[in-house]
Design a protein around this nucleic acid. Structure first.
Lengths: 196, 196, 196, 196
DNA sequence: GATGAATGAGACTTCATTCAT
DNA sequence: GATGAATGAAGTCTCATTCAT
């Protein structure tokens, strides 16, 4: 009684499978060290099939970026904030959500940071995500604090990039969240001292 | 008092030339995208010579890391601080020196960050530099402020990684230092609010 | 009853073609002097294809040894002997068959002897073939003669290796079989003097 | 008080040292697998020096063949025979001397047989040695036996090549001479049955 | 849609050889 | 005579990409 996935459906799934396989592979070994054979194997298909769906290996990279973005989850986390709660509580919750999202999309993040230095288009993408992320948080925090908007931008930018950096270098290798939680708490407290 | 190491001297220079050429090439195109031909050309020698001095292309990577380290310049910048001056002044001066050093060793930095995500040994190296950098600055600042040492560590870690991040994503592409200077000033001011 | 293995069939043939091309090339120039380009050209394919079928150039060597062996034809020659005929007649026929087989598999033989001195695995292979060849002939001759089995083994070993040596150094360059035939006849006669 | 070896003397020794080093290296790894670096290292000199004494790597091969030959020791062994003793005794002694010589010049033998299949000039050399060896032994044995000269030639050729083969495949890897001695005794006995 | 055989450019590396010192 | 830095051709192997089936 299974829903007969139409041929088109099947094709979409294969394409999606390939994108995800490519993401995992790129994140693990980097773009150039990943071979199309690796990706095909990871996706459980044969070599040639990649070129039925994508023009080139690089095309797969863009397909990944088209499929995934961090911003969506950032928006979600911000939307979920409780207007009644304290800023400290909300920021802590936000950064915890951010860490969860980073962890969920770890492959994407790691790949993007790995490639950003050598691939201008990826770097532009990363920059845009950071900028938008900063702006979104800024829009949320600005009405609640007295700090000059320009300075607030710097503060937000700094705390946000510190977080991502901490995730990349430390948090993602940790077994549990104890340290991260403590780190977030401290960072938020310090951020509040700035913006108070 | 003999200067007639001319032959040996020449060899050392060639080796050094190769390391520097490799650094430039790796930083520009990444490790895997850099070919040994590229490197040889950049150094102005023929391909084969690389293997007279190094066991492999990867060996060149380690040779680069052996030759250069950021820590030396960090130490210098800290040593140059004026004990009589205000903390704000000193920190600003320190971060400006850091930015100058980052710019001078731009190739190394960019390469390290590019490779760190996929090369565990490079990542370990980057981590160590960050950790030591944080410790050095911590040792300088701790006696001058009242903040709990653990929290101070987080504050320093955050401000330092933010700086590096800012350099990587923004400052290194800027034509002049106006923006960076402003950014540093603001960041230092905010840091002081935390540690005060 | 399907013959539509055409695709797979084609692949098997290409692989086989590569093995044969490698055998010819190795036998003509030796293993190290043979380049993969040589082999590919001899097989009428492009370089890269070798690595679709084999892991390495050396792998081709083992594939050759897996595909071919002298022992089969030795067994055939022994099986074809006429129990009614005289030992002299049978031995002569056997060695003539051996020479024909050596000539047919000349490439293999020459390659094996060329590589045996420097490649222990090949030498082991050659030793095994000689040993088995001696044992097979011994099993056939032993019941027909009175010589002590140990001594018979030496006699058989000697006559057999002499034959192979003669083939390698002389017979394979001769235009016709006249000399070889005479040589075989004489050698058999002398062998009979020993075992009588 | 050391005898001042003149510069010329020194040069001759270096050259000789290089030839011997090349022989050892070629015999161990084969001609093509031996690099000039290997040889220089084995001789305890630097790379370039080879080309001060020899035109090319191949030139070293010819120098080896010029310096060494088996025939001299074969002649010696034959000359040492005792005209009063039995043929059996003399032949046994001769083959034992041959084995000793083969063992002493093992490197040369192994190298020659390894290269003979792919290098016509080496093969010619090997053929000549075998032919001359056969002729020398023939000249010694012929007056003492009644066998037809042509047949005697075959018998001698066979026993001699069997011996060399046995040495190459078996004797040279044995720790002691027990087996070889037994083998020689048996072979000689069988040879005598032929020529008696 | 899917397969995997086939291509060919190019990567890393080796090595015989030359030559300035 | 001796050194070893330097050259450059060539070899093994990889891999993105194509295409007949």
């Amino acid at each position: 009684m299974k829903t007969r996935t139409s041929r088109q459906q099947q094709a979409l799934e294969t394409k999606s499978k390939l994108i995800d396989a490519a993401l995992r592979t790129f994140s693990r070994k980097g773009f150039s060290e990943s071979t199309t054979k690796d990706i095909a194997k990871e996706a459980g298909v044969t070599d040639g099939l990649i070129y039925h769906y994508f023009q080139s290996k690089e095309d797969l990279l863009w397909a990944i970026l088209d499929k995934y973005t961090l911003l969506h989850s950032i928006r979600q986390a911000l939307a979920a904030m409780d207007k009644q709660a304290s800023l400290e509580h909300n920021l802590t919750a936000y950064f915890q959500a951010l860490f969860r999202n980073l962890r969920e999309q770890q492959d994407l993040i790691v790949m993007c940071f790995g490639e950003a230095q050598r691939n201008p288009e990826i770097r532009a993408r990363v920059e845009e995500i950071i900028r938008t992320g900063v702006e979104l948080l800024h829009a949320f925090v600005a009405p609640l604090v007295r700090l000059d908007p320009q300075e607030l931008l710097v503060a937000i930018r700094n705390v946000q990039t510190s977080m991502v950096f901490y995730f990349l270098m430390t948090a993602r290798f940790a077994d549990d969240d104890t340290q991260s939680t403590e780190y977030i708490r401290t960072s938020v407290k310090q951020f509040l001292k700035i913006v108070a």
